[in-house]
Structures are given as structure tokens and as C-alpha cells.
Nucleic acid binder design. Structure first.
Length: 269
DNA sequence: AGCTCATGGCGAG
DNA sequence: TCGCCCTGAGCTG
């Protein structure tokens, strides 16, 4: 579920539903029970996201949520919760309810601790104050492959496997290109793709990366949308024809994640 | 009913 | 580099 667009979207949804109102807070599963009891009945003062981290604020007390690979936070009309054994956190005002399951992190933080989490992150393309040069500084002095660097949250906070594969495709960059061989111009364009693609993903809840001239319809093929809901060039399309050149999309395990690319459009150099 | 995999990240070795 | 954590959807049988 979770690249940066998801957590930013959730922050918006939480603010819209609960900001400046007292809420009921509970942890039916029990693992967050002590903190939940402390926050129950308090005013939810705001919600903010930084990369893949979500901060839900109750005055000075901050709930830090990181969904990890399988975590989900669903915000919707309040209804009796099911599967209480996995329900880590529930926030409700009686009208709307937010239900958190399977997070990698759900912890109560002080402002200072939150600042430390943020300080460990690189620039977030979804934040207006992001400085892409901080990411560039790491890329240009690293021999690590660009595919590895793009998942490093110190390089670009909030970028995950879909945005990584898709931005590399859009810039026709081979995933294993060493960072120090990536030119400044190419980095600017990669960053530009994140800045261009991520805000619409926050708004829509899906990741769309395909240019109008390359959509399956434009190429005379049936529409093809990934399970995550978006239209993409290579992500999870192994063996299918590249939308631009028709070559079978390649896939390979790389650093415990699946990497997708077109060996013809993204040549090594 | 069971198995596999997933848009992450951590710590041990 | 690997194993591990967390949950549930989408397959296979």
C-alpha cells in the first residue's frame, strides 16, 4: 500500500475528518493500548506526512505511523470494527473511523523524537520546501546503483518501488547505473518526475506514469491497469510488451525487491 | 484451506 | 546478504 503519496493522502484525510475535534482512541489488539488510553478523548490537532512517515498530532503527543510493506490505514464511515485481533489503532469521532492494521511502526513520540525521525530523511518531493540537491549530493558520490539509491529514504523520502521503476523507465536509465555516473541533468529530470507524478497520486490514490502518447489505447492495445489502480510502463509488467518499443519487460530480484525495466529502452552505458 | 506475494525497513552476522 | 516482522489479497487446489 505505501509509498509517500499514500501517507500524504492519509494525512489529508485525517485532518479533514478529525482536525481540532476530540476523538475516541483505542487499540483493540492491545499493542498500543497504553498510549491509546492516554490519547482517548483528546483533541486531534493535526496530521502530517514526511516521506512514508505519518504523524498524527494530539498537542505535544505525536503518534508516529509507518505502514511498512503490508500496513493499512483505512479512513471511512464509522462502523463496528471487525477483526479486533489485528486492529492496532482505531480513531473515531462517531461519524468517521480510521483503522490501522499491520503497521511496521505505531509509537507515541515527543516533538523531539519526531524531529529526529524527520532529520534522518532526505528531501520529500511532495513537500514544497524539499531541496533536491541534498539527494543529489548522495547520488553523485555513490558507486551504488541508481535503483538502490532511489529507494534510500535519505536520497528521496517517500519514493518506493513503483515510483523508482517508473521514473527510471521515463528517463531511460538502466537501473544498475552507478550513482556517480548519473549526470546532474538526469538527476534533475528524475526529481522532476517525482514532483510531477506524486501530487496527482496523492489526489487520485493511484500511480499513473504513462504519457498520453504511450497509453495502450493510443498504441491500439486494450487498457492495462495494475492492481494498485494505476497505469504504468514497467512495474509488475514482466513479460508483457514495452508500451514504447514492444520488447518484453524484464524483471529481476535486486536487493530483496523486484525490479522491472525494459532492456531495450533502458540500455546500460 | 493453504500458499505466495506485496507500494518497507530493521537488525544480526 | 539474509531472516524477520506485520496482514490480507489473489491465486491454486
Amino acid at each position: 500500500m505505501p509509498e509517500g503519496h499514500v501517507t500524504h493522502r492519509l494525512a489529508r484525510e485525517l485532518e479533514l475528518a478529525f482536525a481540532d475535534r476530540p476523538v475516541r482512541v483505542a487499540s483493540p489488539q492491545g499493542r498500543f493500548a497504553e498510549a491509546a488510553a492516554l490519547l482517548d478523548g483528546q483533541v486531534l490537532t493535526g496530521a502530517e506526512s514526511w516521506g512514508k512517515n505519518l504523524f498524527i498530532e494530539f498537542g505535544a503527543a505525536i503518534v508516529h505511523v509507518h505502514l511498512g510493506l503490508i500496513g493499512k490505514l483505512r479512513v471511512g464511515p464509522a462502523a463496528p470494527p471487525s477483526a479486533l485481533d489485528t486492529l492496532r489503532l482505531r480513531i473515531t469521532d462517531g461519524i468517521t473511523a480510521a483503522e490501522l492494521r499491520g503497521p511496521q511502526t505505531c509509537a507515541l513520540l515527543t516533538g523531539e523524537e519526531r524531529a529526529a525521525v524527520v532529520a534522518a530523511l532526505g528531501p520529500d518531493p511532495l513537500r514544497a520546501d524539499a531541496d533536491p540537491l541534498r539527494g543529489w549530493a548522495r547520488v553523485t558520490r555513490s558507486a551504488r546503483p541508481i535503483a538502490s539509491l532511489l529507494l534510500d529514504q535519505r536520497v528521496a523520502a517517500g519514493v518506493g518501488n513503483i515510483f523508482r521503476c517508473e521514473a527510471l523507465y521515463r528517463q531511460r536509465l538502466h537501473p544498475l547505473t552507478p550513482g556517480l555516473r548519473v549526470t546532474r541533468r538526469r538527476w534533475d529530470r528524475l526529481w522532476g518526475d517525482f514532483v510531477e507524478l506524486m501530487p496527482p497520486a496523492v489526489a487520485s490514490g493511484r500511480i499513473d506514469t504513462v504519457l498520453p502518447e504511450h497509453t495502450p489505447e493510443a498504441m491500439g492495445r486494450p487498457p492495462r491497469v495494475d492492481r494498485h489502480g494505476g497505469e504504468v510502463y514497467v512495474y509488475r509488467r514482466a513479460g508483457e510488451p514495452c508500451l514504447v518499443c514492444g520488447t518484453e519487460v524484464s524483471a529481476q530480484e535486486f536487493e530483496a525487491r523486484r525490479l522491472y525495466w525494459c532492456r531495450r529502452c533502458q540500455r546500460r552505458r
